[in-house]
Design a protein around this nucleic acid. Structure first.
Lengths: 216, 216, 216, 216
DNA sequence: AATGAATGAGAGTTCATTCAT
DNA sequence: GATGAATGAACTCTCATTCAT
């Protein structure tokens, strides 16, 4: 093995370790943010949760805000990927419009269930003057507008489309959070994930159907 | 004028002044909370906005939390009153179920428009581990469940009723916030208050109608 | 009754009332100081204890320090008077030196018992950068030096005289405070006031006798 | 040098530095407390005196009280050690009772001279409702009771023993403080340390001798 | 690269003092 | 003269960030 190779190998080992440390911090941050909120979370809590030294944080992130953005960006990447795929499938008309709606809602609920902490953090609202919660909702509302255009190629005023998308995203995201909290308290009479998805989907589909039927 | 009268008059003048100061603080807090969120808001910002001395705050509130609760309680009192009245009217069947739903949604939107800051504060979400935003949403969801029982006396499982109410309250409240933000930016193609109410109402009514028709 | 008389009468009524208010504040201050110490005592506590309005304080005293000095000065006035009298009697040789010493110690203990709060406050030590406790001890030590000169007209170096006086005043004052605290806890086996005085007196007299016998 | 060794070395260097900082704070606190008293002393004064950053304080002590206790505990440890040793020697009867008394008084005076600030702080009196000064005096009075029992095995009532011990400790400690203040002002006619010890010792011994001779 | 001691700006809170009533 | 609401300086404590090791 050449000198250069050795160096590279060592470098890659280093960067792998570095990536692991970074991951630890992101995971820890997600947990801490979910419990204490963004503003109240402290770097000390996060590094302690990650079982890392105090100063290590600043080797990976320039500030708490940068960390927050990274948590959201990397956390929601998977959801974004799934949604992108669904949009493509909608374009290829593999499913009916109503089927797609239900699939999308199911994706949201499942993602929320598997990323409880992150989901709550992301949709938490306007904390600390950061409009991140809002921008996330806006982002998914915009995406939903795109979807609706694919499904119902009827032209409706942009403003109405936005309002519809906003409404549905708000409903789905908050209801998912609510559902997780219900589940947590282990009520005897509680809705399964499938039931919850079914109810919300039917509601959304009925509303949309009505809306588009009149618009035509 | 007797000694006693003088004393009383002085006392009432003082308490009037005190009440005014308290009001100033509540108004200022509402504004500041809407911009920065609860956690990041500082007492200094609030007293400065109210154009009052720093220590004055502590003559009226023991802490930021107490102020926050007072802002919400006193701010939403009017909305609560209107909703209570509507529930009574629903019981007396003065309106059809669908009319009531639309009226309720209109009340929310109008209240939001006239209490922008407050509405955003109240529904801002779970800020910093404080569950106040949540409890407000929960409170109105519970109220909405009551209303639905009056309108559609069909018995449906409690858990489904809760989910429906939660969904609708989430949708209406967040969409109202969104609408206010749209309006602010004075887009050329924007929805009037009446239009927004109409769209959301139609959507909600269609969803509910579908839901109850199947349940029957 | 002439106009002038009326005026005077009214004025005297006023000033009598004023004096009462002042007295209330002094009494309240004494209590509060004894419990919380000088620095930690607040004007609010004092006026509340005196059942007076907040601002009233500043009609009678310019500051907390002024109050503190007044409390001590007026409180110890009686003790000073008694001691002055004893010194005169010593000059007239109505009692033997040892009798005088015992009388003085008895006066201290009785005054301490009847002015618990005040005595503790006065001898509390150096609180808040105020050297008042020290100056009080110094004052009584100086007085005691005078007394010793009367009783034992032998000339001993000033520095030794001061040391002796300081020692005895320290011993008597602190032991009186200790005795009051013992009594408070109502121990079964506790010393009566007379016993305590007797022990301390005998101790002091023996020490002094020895000292002066050698000096001669 | 192995990885582990390096780590350990680094840790020990760090903890050494930490210990130094802690020491600086204790020293500074001693000075500040002696001048301003406990209640009026501020953290800022202390850190400034120690030439350290403001927040550094809280890395080492949780509060001013904790610091105060540490100052006393660590400061008086040496005195306690010496006294313990003397008590042992008294038990082994290496010295006569009167010699022991003089040795003890000398120890107190010498310790006071070498720990001026600390000694004043410790015996400053009941500051602001904190009973620490009192408890220190009580502690040494109790120790002195033990000593007296060794020296004079005659049984005298506990209450009288306590009163005697209290008196002597009060006398010795306050007189030591007084002596230091005299010295400071560099009076022409002032007592040397040895002289002061001699006077106080003779006084105390004469008093005790008289007391025990009568008790027998 | 990792660490954590040191830092100080900034937050909440208290309270002596002023002043309008 | 009596009052207590208003004030802001001063204090304690927290925590993001820096930096020497």
């Amino acid at each position: 093995m050449s000198q250069k190779d050795k160096k590279e190998k060592r470098a890659s080992r280093k960067s792998r370790r570095q990536a692991e440390t970074r991951k630890s911090l992101l995971d820890a941050a997600r947990k801490v943010f979910a419990v204490t909120g963004l503003t109240s979370a402290t770097i000390a809590q996060i590094t302690e949760t990650a079982d890392l030294g105090f100063g290590t944080f600043y080797l990976h992130f320039a500030s708490k805000e940068e960390l927050y953005l990274a948590v959201l960006k990397e956390g929601f990447a998977e959801l974004d990927k799934e949604l992108k795929q669904i949009l493509d499938e909608a374009r290829e008309s593999q499913y009916s419009g109503n089927e797609i709606i239900e699939i999308v809602i199911a994706i949201f609920f499942r993602f929320a269930r598997e990323n409880r902490d992150l989901f709550q953090v992301g949709f938490a609202g306007l904390d600390a003057g950061m409009q991140i919660g809002i921008s996330l909702r806006k982002q998914y509302a915009d995406w939903f507008s795109e979807l609706l255009k694919e499904i119902h190629p009827v032209e409706i005023p942009e403003s109405q489309l936005e309002l519809l998308s906003t409404s549905i995203v708000a409903m789905v995201s908050r209801t998912a959070v609510w559902w997780m909290q219900q589940k947590e308290e282990s009520e005897p009479d509680f809705l399964s994930l499938e039931q919850a998805i079914a109810v919300v989907s039917r509601f959304a589909i009925a509303g949309l159907t009505d809306f588009y039927s009149i618009s035509n």
